[in-house]
């Protein structure tokens, strides 16, 4: 038993801690969508610098996604998207370009809540309550315009000098 205890890495079944709640309003450049961030859960506390980077980089990610879907330029995704999210939106933009469709977004802002920040700081899960207007065009023909309130689950991972969106999945409102 002693051998077992000394030889094996002992699992510590940690329970996600409940962290301090704080709301940060972005002080971003005017061209970026507005993003608010509420930090409510751990297990790792979010450092101030990380908090501000998340605010900036998530806003910039949406800005590039909006521009990519409007201009049908998938290369715009390279700066702030990676992994599954980049693959998915790249495919979508290419299909849009092939069919002559494009989307115009008017971004009314995002309310982010941190659901999970891994102990080693390698992944963060957020929930985004987003409000935006989307207009769908086929060429110059407006097919549909709608103001939407959507809830997204987001996975972000740190890159060399920024946080990248790895997964962006909209989920039912409840």
């Amino acid at each position: 038993m002693k051998l077992l205890a000394s030889a094996v890495a002992c699992l510590l079944f940690a329970v996600p801690g409940v962290g301090q709640t704080a709301v940060v309003h972005s002080t971003l450049t005017a061209s970026l969508p507005s993003v608010e961030l509420t930090v409510s859960r751990g297990p790792r506390d979010i450092e101030d610098l990380t908090r501000h980077k998340i605010l900036h980089d998530y806003a910039a990610a949406w800005q590039t996604l909006d521009a990519g879907l409007e201009q049908n330029r998938s290369e715009l995704l390279n700066d702030y998207f990676t992994g599954f999210a980049k693959d998915e939106f790249t495919r979508t933009i290419k299909e849009q370009a092939g069919t002559g469709i494009h989307r115009h977004y008017v971004d009314h802002g995002h309310k982010l809540e941190v659901l999970f920040y891994s102990p080693d700081g390698s992944v963060m899960q957020l929930q985004d309550q987003a409000e935006y207007e989307v207009q769908i065009f086929d060429g110059n023909r407006l097919l549909h315009s709608e103001t939407m309130t959507a809830r997204f689950l987001v996975l972000m991972t740190p890159g060399a000098d920024r946080w990248m969106v790895r997964l962006l999945q909209d989920v039912p409102a409840s």
Partner: peptide, 10 residues
């Protein structure tokens, strides 16, 4: 929870 589970080990 929301698709994620985690642990820490010594």
């Amino acid at each position: 929870r929301n698709g994620i589970v985690w642990t820490r080990l010594n």
